[in-house]
Design a protein around this nucleic acid. Structure first.
Length: 571
RNA sequence: CGGGGCGUAGCUCAGCCCGGUUAGAGCGCUUGGUUUGGGACCAAGAAGUCGCAGGUUCAAAUCCUGUCGCCCCGACCA
């Protein structure tokens, strides 16, 4: 491809609307243009990279015996009514105005329809079907360039099995394939256990990449072997100590003490003697939550523990119920002094299980109670893991200290089970002639996210730095000094020779821009190797090669250039 | 859905508060000339219903109302 006649609209200035590096660079490098919020045109350079990523995906999917197919984007809304997903997706689902059709946000229903009509025996399974297609979701807030769009390219595959063991096998095949795919794309990823959300099903894992542009917060061990969403993450932290002797309760005056730190200092005690109280509503029930020291309550964990939505109690309401303000609440005597109708629940974090000689609020402003024994002096309804982990704490499987990072979800694999087959009556006859629902799995990868994440991870102040696996072109041939006939001739010859040798080359043959302009563009576009043809080097029979990633330059004899370039690809 | 910001030339933006020449700059584009190893220079040009609709006014890019679009934060996110 020649730059002079190609469509690569680069821009010097950083576009105002783009905030994250990948978005800025994809616009500056002439890869994408936004047509509407969350809707992008993928220009030639971009699409070449997409095709690279898709080809890697295809190879690895084919390798596990998956079969590629192509499904309609339009599907009858009736199909989605049957699985209850018109309601589940809500506003995310794009509806058509003049036909009872929807734009598919994913394809479980269509796969299930196919399976229902054509899979009737256990002998016909397992099957793995996949598609690499555009999906449509009316995201309430598209953002971060192509990372969250209203239409996007997704590799989605679906497994059909006759047994639960079969599903496990199909699922594991995908997990293995995904590891290979992301590794081949040069991405650092980690795997986190995930909730299945509205997809339903019995298990799922996410493939995440660490990135500041990410929307998920993940705790990951130093060696990336252990990762979990902070909403469920745990760490190794010691429990509060239990002394052999529980001392007698004692009320102490603690004037103007508002925080745990102030309290620890005022009473000169360690944090692990302090039980912090926070009060929430779980539906209409007030819940006193005890946390050790300065441990932060994790609302998502509380929600899971309570099995319902939770929200912090209002300050006035708390005062009205207990007669004390937030800083002075505690478990001792709480139920006695609050109206029975309130039905106060008291729960505590696991770190406090059975602890004694604790200090907590006295339910009286400016007073605390010392030497509380949670077993002797109050009734804890339940203990749960409720704390938010902190960076630096030891990971639960002893694989080093945890980091807390933002992550982008690159892929997600689900064991769906029989939810869809049940709803759409996709059944088969098993070995005993008994009718059973088909057991499904579904497995997605975001193609745009592979490219955008790669750019997020591989760029500098000058532009993109492509990995060889995803680069639109392996080589960027730059003719410097296009007034010189020798340069023009030599670069044209090289271009032809490189193409003949099957090398992917972008040829900057422009005669109307300065060398500096070409160099800036070459760095911006970020092909792995720049092959620079200049008059001075040419006079000595040499061609210059610049490695984009390192900036390292070398000079190669013109005659041996093609061989040399081939060796560069091999490394 | 809550909060904030922005819509003026292809791009980045000034002008708006405080209404009043013919609406500007830089980049890009066209033509001619000079340049050519890190986003060159000179000259001459083309390019805008100031997002849209209504209102106030002798007069609106500027003030008011509505509306549409875009970005950011939050909520949400198979």
């Amino acid at each position: 491809m020649r730059v002079s006649s190609g469509f690569i609209p680069t821009v010097k200035e950083t576009p105002a609307d783009a905030v994250i590096p990948s978005h800025q660079l994809m616009i500056r490098a002439g890869m994408v243009r936004a047509l509407a919020a969350g809707v992008y045109a993928y220009l030639p350079l971009c699409y070449r990279s997409f095709k690279k990523a898709m080809e890697i995906i295809r190879q690895e999917m084919d390798a596990i015996g998956a079969q590629e197919l192509h499904l309609p984007a339009l599907s009858p809304i009736e199909l989605w009514e049957e699985t209850g997903r018109v309601k589940a997706f809500g506003d995310i689902l794009f509806h058509l105005k003049n036909r009872p059709l929807v734009l598919a946000p994913t394809h479980e229903e269509v796969i299930c329809w196919l399976a229902k009509n054509h899979i009737s025996s256990y002998k016909e399974m397992p099957q793995i079907w996949y598609q690499i297609q555009t999906k449509f979701r009316n995201e309430p807030r598209p953002r971060s360039g192509v990372l969250r769009g209203r239409q996007f390219i997704m590799k989605d595959s679906y497994s059909l099995d006759s047994t639960w063991n079969g599903l496990d096998k199909s699922y594991d095949l995908h997990a293995q394939a995904y590891k290979k795919i992301f590794a081949r794309c040069g991405l650092n990823f980690f795997i986190v256990g995930a909730s299945s959300g509205a997809m339903g099903g019995t298990g799922s894992q996410e493939f995440m990449m660490e990135s500041n542009a990410g929307e998920d917060i993940i705790a990951v061990s130093a060696d990336n072997s252990n990762a979990a969403n902070v909403e469920v993450a745990t760490s190794r932290v010691p429990a509060a100590p239990r002394d052999s002797e529980s001392k007698a309760l004692k009320e102490v005056r603690t004037p103007n003490i508002k925080t745990i730190d102030q309290l620890a200092e005022f009473l000169t005690v360690d944090h692990n003697r302090l039980a912090k109280s926070v009060v929430y509503w779980a539906d209409e029930t007030p819940v006193l939550v005890l946390m050790l020291g300065n441990d932060e309550l994790n609302e998502a964990k509380l929600m899971t523990a309570m099995g319902t939505e939770v929200r912090p109690i209002e300050a006035e309401k708390l005062l009205a119920l207990t007669g004390a303000d937030g800083g002075s609440i505690g478990p001792v005597g709480l139920r006695e002094r609050t109206p029975a109708s309130a039905k106060f629940k008291i729960v505590a974090d696991n770190r406090l299980r059975g602890a004694n000689n604790l200090i907590s609020g006295a339910n009286k402003n400016d007073f605390h109670i010392m030497n509380i024994d949670l077993e002797r002096d109050c009734t804890i309804d339940s203990y749960y893991d409720l704390r938010t982990i902190n960076p630096g704490e030891e990971s639960p499987n002893d694989t080093g200290p945890l980091r807390v990072v933002k992550g982008v979800e690159l892929g997600h694999i689900f064991k769906l089970g029989t939810k869809y087959a049940d709803a759409l009556h996709a059944k088969f006859l098993d070995e005993n002639g008994k009718e059973q629902p088909i057991i499904m799995g579904s497995y997605g990868i975001g193609v745009e996210r592979i490219i955008a994440c790669h750019i997020e991870q591989n760029h500098d102040e000058n532009g993109i730095i492509w990995d060889k696996s995803l680069a639109p072109f392996m080589f960027h041939l730059v003719a410097v000094g296009t007034k010189s006939k020798t340069v023009i001739e030599a670069s044209e010859q090289l271009y032809a020779a490189m193409q003949a040798a099957g090398l992917e080359v972008l040829f900057d043959d422009r005669t109307d821009v300065s060398p500096g302009f070409k160099f800036k563009d070459a760095d911006l576009l970020g092909m792995p190797f720049q092959v620079i043809v200049g008059e001075k080097n040419l006079a000595q029979g040499k061609i210059e090669i610049k490695v984009r990633k390192t900036g390292e330059r070398s000079f190669v004899e013109k005659e041996s250039l093609i061989l040399h370039l081939k060796s560069l690809i091999e490394d």
